[in-house]
């Protein structure tokens, strides 16, 4: 029973660690690399520290908050779609939709006004007219 409990606890710790490693950037200078991906010495030290803190039963959120408080919010690798961040998620799609609408309006407005002759002259009549013009040209 104890063995099973220990195994479960270790599995939970591993999952927490993975979650942590993916959630923050390394501050070594590779600004776009999470601790999970970064292979520098700094990242290794951070990973060790996270392991120790998890063993002390700190939560993932606690450890992450402390890390960001120490190094700065720019090392947060997860941009949750909440609060002011919603603006970051919504605005690009607004760009897409609004510019799309503008493009469609431009195309529609560029369409020539309906040709009056087409609405009152049938295709047969139009053909007859063309034939008459052709004959007229031949006569000239």
């Amino acid at each position: 029973m104890l063995v099973i409990l220990l195994q479960l606890s270790s599995q939970a710790n591993n999952d927490d660690l993975k979650q942590l490693l993916k959630s923050v950037y390394c501050y070594c200078g590779c600004s776009r690399e999470t601790i999970e991906v970064c292979v520098c010495g700094v990242a290794q030290e951070i990973e060790k520290k996270f392991k120790q803190e998890l063993a002390l039963e700190k939560t993932v959120d606690q450890i992450k908050s402390e890390y960001l408080a120490q190094h700065g919010s720019q090392f947060d690798a997860i941009m949750k779609a909440e609060g002011f961040n919603l603006v970051a998620y919504i605005t690009p799609f607004l760009f897409l939709v609004i510019s799309g609408l503008i493009a469609v309006i431009i195309i529609k407005n560029q369409k020539p006004k309906e040709d009056i002759t087409r609405s009152i002259v049938s295709d047969n009549e139009f053909g007859d007219l063309e034939e008459k013009i052709r004959q007229y040209r031949q006569q000239r």
Binding site: M79, F84, A88, P92, S99
Partner: peptide, 28 residues
Amino acid sequence: TAMILFGTLWPIISEAVTQQKMAVPEAY
């Protein structure tokens, strides 16, 4: 282009509004 520019400039925008410089992850 506009969407990528907006995402690229987001750290500056977020800092101006919230006083916190946010990083924009690859996933975004």
